[in-house]
Design a protein around this nucleic acid. Structure first.
Lengths: 148, 148
DNA sequence: TAGAATGTCTATATGACAAGTAGACTTTTA
DNA sequence: TAAAAGTCTACTTGTCATATAGACATTCTA
């Protein structure tokens, strides 16, 4: 039930980019890697995957870098995780994006499957409705609460 | 975010055992393996882990086998999964049973962490309140709905 | 127009872990 | 005492996570 490093790094990088986006800047990989303490070459691959998935855009050459393809309000954590880590579902037979039969005699009446479907939905309900903007808002909110 | 085969097999085996428990029987590994189509030697290890965790008891020798250490109403899916697959939390910095710092500058105000905490809680709320008895009940319920 | 700064792409290394297999050993019963 | 069961440890095999390396393409600027 664990998020991979790739997934975690990708999320952190996207949040980082969302913070820069307010100034509509283009951010080089190196800067993100330094900021988030991620191996540069690993981050390269991650950002490339996110670009190929249409979540990022990039500019080559001097002064180039990455930037969000859409405003932070329109990018969900669920989307990012699915690109980097695959389906959210704990078992394939309840996955929306990558269904596979699990071999139990009757999926329709399998109690375990029904519970796992609840789990999948609980996860997806959170991750598919939480955007990068929401994450940033929660961070600021927590910071304010702390200083009170 | 995926359950391992070990976890899935273990859950299915426990549910199987819970079904036999009504007759307070002792079930040999081979029978469970056949029923659930699980490799016998693999299932051996799984049941042993569950026994060492106190969820199963066993009887050696002819006529021996496994049986639940507690009634099905008292065994949660969360407990089984933790034994076989480790923590439920998607990242360790929100794990109750296996916390580890994640290296972000301030965990208390990390928005990503707060979201992941929600996810962990959503998963745990389901898995730690759903028992083997609940799974069996849902199966029966689904079967009844089907024949209506 | 050269060269430095950037992203792009593919290949490779390494270690951990999942999933499964093997076999010797112990206990119990008939 | 032999057969049927669980116990324990080691091993195999393949896949995947987590990187690392290096050649290449593009863009800017001096």
């Amino acid at each position: 039930m664990k998020l991979s490093k790739r997934g975690e790094y990708g999320l952190r990088a996207m949040i980082d980019l969302a913070n820069w986006t307010t100034e509509s800047a283009v951010v080089p990989i190196k800067d993100i890697a330094t900021q988030e303490k991620i191996p540069v070459k690993f981050l390269e691959q991650i950002l490339l995957m996110l670009k190929n998935a249409g979540l990022l855009q990039s500019k080559m050459g001097v002064g180039g870098g990455y930037y969000l393809a859409k405003p932070p309000e329109e990018i969900t954590l669920g989307h990012i995780i699915r690109v980097l880590d695959g389906p959210l579902a704990p078992v394939r037979c309840v996955s929306q994006m990558a269904y596979e039969p699990c071999g139990c005699p009757d999926e329709e009446t399998c109690g375990l499957r029904l519970v796992m479907l609840d789990v999948r939905n609980a996860i997806a309900d959170i991750l598919d409705t939480t955007t990068l903007a929401d994450v940033i808002a929660r961070t600021h909110q927590a910071q304010n609460n702390k200083t009170l």
